[in-house]
Amino acid sequence: MRVLPWIYLTAAFVFIYLPVGALVLFSFQGGGLPVPPFDGPSLRWYADILGDEDLVAALLHSLAVAGGSSAVACTLGFLAAYGLARHVMPGSALVRGLLIAPLTVSYLIVGLGLLMVLQRLGLPLSLMTAGIGHVVINLPLCFAIIYASMGAQQQNAERAARDLGAREWQVVTLVTVPMLMPALLAAFFLSVTLSWDEFIISFLLTRFDVTLPVEIWSLLRSGLSPRLNAIGSLVFLVSIVAVFLAELLIFRKRP
């Protein structure tokens, strides 16, 4: 009975790490197929993808969309959280509900709705339209994280600043934002991770310039390849770094 939990734990970890392990291991494959036996290690596939212009362009597009949409989502989320937490507003429960609502709808439906509106209006698809979609899905999350971290402690500091003659914009920029910085950055990095990984909205709302997941998707049609392993491993690495930054910031706040 004593060993049973440890056997289960080991089995669970094998299951959880099997795909990631195979992905990373065979990205160092020497030959042309990412299946056993392993004949590496070799860095040729990493050299291969870093020399591929389309892939590097897609990577830069992804970073731009993730950074841009997350900055907008964080700013809008912060302003809304500040307004709702610091001002007396009738119907604030309804507003909060509306801001959170996109969380309950699948990405496919968000993308489909936006696509139809853009087509009706005759607007062209671009990285910008994909970014607009990413703000829609990340705004609820940013708002929720920032709203939850607005406590009485900051409110006292804000009151003190106001009593000392600070104007509203000074209170916000000099007191509230610095005090909320950990929550703001956590929301930002979480949002970056989600946007960086997002496929379906980018797929529906971009045309000529595409993001990395969409590029990977089109490469997938030609089947298994160590190139895809190398790209996938790099994508994973970026996500992990962003998550670690978010984690670090969230947990530094409450030691």
Binding site: T75, L76, G77, L79, A80, Y82, G83, L84, R86, H87, V88, M89, P90, V95, L98, L99, A101, P102, V105, I109, V110, L112, G113, L114, M116, V117, R120, I132, G133, V135, V136, L139, F143, E168
Partner: peptide, 27 residues
Amino acid sequence: DTLKGWGFVAPALLWTLAFFVVPFVVM
């Protein structure tokens, strides 16, 4: 005070209305 509050909430609210609620109604 309420008016100021709406001022802060407006950008997020308008974004959600324009790019989420409207597309949903269109759908």
